[in-house]
């Protein structure tokens, strides 16, 4: 039962609960019009303490397409946080107005603080370099649609594996499926954090290898997950400049990949994927963005506990 629960990190839901969300997302993709009144009278609060275009729009579009309404802020300067209010108090107050909330914050674990203070479902829309579980839902739905299953896959993760929250969440989620192996492609300075290595890979006995050159791995992977080196995660501008163009996926490298390999990217892209790759049928990152909205629609419905039939039900205030 997903109703009333929060999604703070990928392991909050079981594999079966993921499947429940994907099945509903499939139905929405097939016939979106059927769901347009599902969340009528429900209110989503978007608390974005860090700039976001894609994720915020994706959540807002998801709620509006379900017939619901949205309130919120897109940067902390326009909220009471600028006056020094704590995260816990902000979320506790918002929970008096909204039925469900989405939070993005530059500090790792901030949504957990929010969820501890709130009695409405709270969704982590990215916390610093830590986790981004709804991007993982997006990634998994795209993989499921393309590969049919998650088992037996060799997944290459390339770029900023240290601060790349989408990478950490995806690895966590995939670690529960059988016969998955990882190829970790990153410069020495941006290797995966200790907790991912110890708690996800070593603890679960998941095979992985680490390489520095994309060319050395691209031929063996079924999925290539490219990431951007994020300027906002660096304390030192010099390090960012040195590492930002470390990997560039282009047509020449794509020629060395399997014919059924797929390329994913959480977006936005900067230079790490050449524009020429966009027309390659294996490049699925824009399709992935569309799946993101559908899977968020499914997630909102599940956490609110609404069904297509219950579209007449009135929303309830929960303060």
């Amino acid at each position: 039962m997903l109703k009333g629960r929060s999604l703070l990190e990928p392991m909050d839901f079981t594999v079966e609960e993921y499947e429940e969300i994907f099945t509903l997302a499939d139905q929405i993709i097939e016939e979106p019009g059927r769901f347009r009144e599902t969340c009528r009278n429900h209110l989503l609060a978007t608390l974005f303490f860090e700039p976001s275009t894609r994720t915020r729009f994706s959540f807002e579009a998801a709620m509006l397409r379900l017939g619901g309404k949205v309130i919120g802020f897109s940067e902390p300067g326009s909220s009471s946080v600028a006056k020094g209010e704590s995260i816990a108090d902000t979320v506790r107050t918002v929970a008096c107005y909204a039925d469900i909330a989405v939070m993005r914050h530059p500090k790792e674990g901030a949504p957990r603080v929010g969820a501890m203070a709130s009695d409405i479902p709270l969704i982590n829309a990215g916390d610093g370099g830590h986790q981004h579980p709804t991007q993982t839902l997006t990634d998994l739905l795209t993989i499921r649609a393309s590969k049919g299953a998650f088992t037996g896959l060799t997944v290459g993760l390339c770029g900023d594996l240290k601060f790349g929250r989408t990478v950490h969440s995806l690895m966590k989620a995939l670690s529960r499926y059988p016969d998955v192996r990882f190829v970790l492609i990153s410069p020495e300075e941006l290797v995966i954090p200790d907790y991912v290595r110890k708690e996800i890979l070593q603890k679960n006995g998941i095979p992985f290898r680490e390489v520095r050159r994309l060319e050395d791995a691209i031929g063996e992977v079924d999925i290539l997950y490219m990431t951007r080196v994020q300027k906002e995660r660096f304390f030192n501008e010099e390090d960012y400049v040195r590492l930002k163009d470390y990997y560039i996926l282009d047509g020449e490298k794509m020629a060395k990949a399997k014919l059924d390999m797929i390329v994913l990217h959480p977006l936005p892209r900067v230079n790490e994927i050449a524009v020429e790759v966009d027309k390659d049928p294996r490049a699925l990152y824009f399709q992935q963005a569309k799946y993101g909205m559908y899977v968020r629609m499914a997630l909102i419905m599940k956490l609110l506990g609404v069904t297509e039939e219950a579209s007449e039900r009135k929303g309830e205030l929960s303060c």
Binding site: E108, G109, A110, V113, H130, P193, D194, Y195, K198
Partner: peptide, 8 residues
């Protein structure tokens, strides 16, 4: 492990 950020 930290409950919030998973730092070890």
């Amino acid at each position: 492990r930290c409950e919030y950020c998973d730092d070890i």
